[in-house]
Design a protein around this nucleic acid. Structure first.
Lengths: 296, 296
DNA sequence: ATGGGTTACGTCAATCGTAACCATG
DNA sequence: CATGGTTACGATTGACGTAACCCAT
């Protein structure tokens, strides 16, 4: 099972065409055909149906394995390259939207003082792609926010040997329109809110499925979906009564126009975790040290 | 980065010898040397120091990536083979020691009635190797027990696309010698026991590091280490006052000679999860269905 | 001098491209 | 009949083994 073969296999499957895949990979259509044939011979099964081109059952299974495999291969290469190559003088930070805050601002300031020549880049991305971006070296480190039980780490996809450290932990509250009867109430149970209308903002807050798992009950039916990473827009929808959302309490305390009530059960925290691989000396390593020690 | 090259690399590193690795892999010493050279050329760095043979820094990093990568490759192959090969007529179940219980016994009985010709095999293994065993097809499915927050899945190593379902969940209690002042006490907090003497039984109960993380405090210093998967021996040590252990409450309730006290905080459960890949029709699939529906 | 990793070189297999071929819509 | 995947074939590349080499105990 050559990685090359796996790459062309996933490409063919994605484009549903041998010739398109050949073009994208810089091969002849014939070479692609031969690679697929070799892979099928190696595994002893047909992987693709031809005309129209699509995965067989076995091909479907292989596809689920192949993508993470290729990510991990690239991650391995990036990891040794990091250690072998020139000392990194850039600083690219990946982060989920809610992970960018005052603590990061302070730390970034110190890094700019120490390395005046580097221009830090902050790239806001979805939670589930960040570990892969770190592993493959597309970002140097990442700040990921999410909900978890106090004792448990965030459930992040495992894409290789990465270090994960919590750098901030805040209580969780539900955002409400001002004047909502529940606003300000203490001891709220998440399960009691399962029948309410919820806002689904996948780039900012945990999805409904996660809420159901945390509360242990069904419900949390999303009424409106908010696509975007902008907090103000989401809060405006909350204020207008379009639904509820779970957010860190300090964020809601500082937001005008919305009320909130802390969630007491189940015991949940909003946590920001720093994800990074090995960091040779440089601005990225400094930023990691600052964030780890600031813890806030 | 050919998988073959990675395999010889990890073998050379493990045996600290080119010639030994060549013997184990069925190559010439020369071929091994050439493969390592090619890999080093590909990655642009020295990976091994010669005479004595050992990994360089970059080699160390690559080793951390290579082992899981090879496991996942084998898992991919096994997964398509499962779907392509002859319908599985065997039944090999992997399980951690505490996951083998009455519910499994009942389910296994039904499987034997439905498939009188198969001889089920139950293989007791450590928690952290079971997912890999499932992925690579060495066992058909696995029952894994462990501690977790009620809403969170067990923290298992991710070795590929596997399905995980909770099949049983029980309260957690601390095992104590009979007559211990805490025995029978309700509302015990785990953190209050951090200074006690603990038994470290890595094959049966969560390690000290996990307890520290769950309780959020230091401590849980292991006094005695118990290597083995036999519950009775461990309980005998508890009864003799050699230390405390965390176990499912029903197990302790049925054990003579030991007392116990349920843990109220943090909210933890002892859960048994079923781990399996795709299961073509056969005894393994039936057992999975039975376990999933019994939930006990 | 010997054990063990490297290098040179010959052989064989694998892979790619060109081009002829065939099947499906 | 045309688009697109397969097969045949020749050329190139790469991988392994033998054997000579070299370096460090």
């Amino acid at each position: 099972m050559d990685p090359q073969q796996l790459r062309t296999f996933v490409t063919v499957a994605r484009l549903a065409s041998f010739s398109e895949a050949a073009r994208e990979l810089g091969y002849t259509q014939s070479a692609v055909s031969q690679q697929i044939a070799a892979l099928e011979a190696d595994l002893g099964t047909a992987l693709l149906l031809r005309r129209p081109v699509g995965p067989t059952g076995a091909g479907q299974r292989l596809l689920e394995h192949a993508a993470p495999l290729l990510v991990r291969l690239e991650a391995a290469r990036a990891d040794v390259a990091r250690l072998a190559g020139a000392p990194n003088t850039r600083l690219v930070l990946g982060a989920t939207a809610l992970a960018v805050g005052a603590a990061l601002g302070r730390a970034l300031g110190e890094v700019r003082r120490a390395y005046p020549r580097v221009e830090p880049v902050v790239r806001v991305l979805a939670q589930d792609v960040l570990p892969a971006q770190v592993a493959t070296g597309e970002v140097d480190l990442a700040l990921v926010d999410g909900l978890a039980a106090p004792s448990d780490p965030l459930p992040l996809p495992d894409v290789g040997p990465l270090r994960t450290v919590a750098v901030a932990e805040r209580p969780v509250a539900v955002a409400l329109p001002v004047g909502h009867p529940l606003a300000g109430r203490a001891g709220l149970a998440l399960a009691d809110l399962s029948a309410a209308r919820w806002l689904d903002a996948p780039d900012l807050t945990p999805p409904a499925a996660r809420l159901r798992a945390a509360a242990g009950v069904d419900g949390f039916r999303p009424a409106t979906r908010y696509q975007g990473t902008d907090l103000h827009g989401l809060l405006a929808l909350v204020a207008a009564g379009h639904g509820l959302t779970l957010l860190p309490e300090p964020v809601l305390a500082a937001a005008p126009g919305v009320g909130y009530a802390p969630i007491a059960a189940p015991r949940l925290v909003h946590r920001i975790e720093l994800v990074h691989g090995s960091l040779p000396e440089g601005p990225a390593a400094l930023l990691a040290r600052l964030l780890e020690s600031s813890r806030g």
